[in-house]
């Protein structure tokens, strides 16, 4: 049985008005099923981030229907108990005046009733272990005392703390190097496997998307130009934009740009 988590029907989102109107999301129709990992792939300003914000309830569609579990998103707090996000730049995600640990604990603020203090501490410890960080390593530490890779793991630890049903991962690997990237992808898979999380992965790198996803949505200028399984999309791309995205990756085994 696969329930629909998100269901978008002819969704449009525009910004501004009159002559300056910009269409960020242009008539998209799709659904995302429970337990899937779906990647939104596209270049900068293709509308993928706006679509991600729509899933978080931060933008409403200008026209069309956008449903979460069959209903429009109305109560933000209730929505965020089930749908959470990790962002691109881990350094700007934490308040530098408080310890990491206290901020991981602050995530419980979204709950209607907070668990007991002991339970919260235990859950934070467990979450840190889940991303291979010993709680003692970050004890009393502030965000600026950790490396980029560690910080990105802290964002993921926050997700382990909250255990949402849906995770929107907005370019979580674009600011980190290859080693950390492989690590983060491992944790995303772990979230899916252990907590049965539905993950929407947003990236400009179709190679990454290919590796993690069950389905790919290729976006260009606000439209979803192609969707399908990673194998289909990468081996038999139908849209020229998909071909473009594939060709633009500097892969070691393929010709890329020739030096003259």
């Amino acid at each position: 049985m696969q329930n629909k988590i998100f269901d978008a029907e002819n969704c449009v989102r525009t910004f501004g008005h009159g002559k300056k109107i910009v269409t960020a999301v242009d008539d998209v129709t799709f659904d995302i099923k429970d337990g899937e990992i779906v990647s939104l792939v596209g270049g900068s300003s293709c509308g993928k981030s706006v679509l991600a914000k729509m899933m978080l309830g931060l933008h409403k569609p200008t026209s069309g229907n956008f449903l979460y579990k069959g209903k429009p998103i109305t109560d933000h707090k209730a929505h965020w108990r089930e749908v959470q996000s990790v962002f691109q730049d881990p350094f700007s995600c934490f308040n530098q005046f408080f310890t990491i640990r206290s901020q991981l604990k602050a995530a419980f603020g979204i709950y209607k009733e907070k668990p007991s203090n002991a339970e919260m501490e235990e859950r934070v410890d467990e979450s840190l272990m889940a991303v291979n960080v010993k709680p003692s390593e970050i004890e009393g530490k502030y965000p600026f005392e950790l490396s980029g890779g560690q910080m990105q793991r802290m964002l993921l630890a926050r997700i382990f703390v909250l255990r949402p049903q849906v995770l929107i991962a907005d370019e979580p690997t674009s600011m980190v190097d290859a080693c950390v990237r492989a690590n983060i992808l491992d944790y995303l898979m772990k979230l899916k496997k252990e907590l049965h999380m539905t993950i929407v992965f947003i990236t400009h790198d179709i190679g990454l998307a290919y590796y993690v996803s069950d389905r790919l949505f290729i976006m260009h200028k606000g439209k979803i130009v192609e969707q399908g399984s990673p194998e289909e999309v990468t081996t038999k791309p139908k849209s020229e934009h998909t071909v473009q995205l594939l060709e633009d990756i500097p892969d070691v085994n393929r010709e890329w740009i020739k030096k003259k």
């Binding site: 933000h76 959470q84 700007s92 995600c93 308040n95 709950y111 926050r158």
Partner: peptide, 25 residues
């Protein structure tokens, strides 16, 4: 900034964001 968005996702209200996440900066 992102940490404000994250604070919202943590369920923080406007006053708390103002006092804890903006004023110290």
């Amino acid at each position: 900034k992102d940490h404000i968005s994250l604070a919202r996702l943590n369920g923080d209200g406007g006053l708390r964001i103002l006092l804890i996440h903006i004023l110290p900066y």
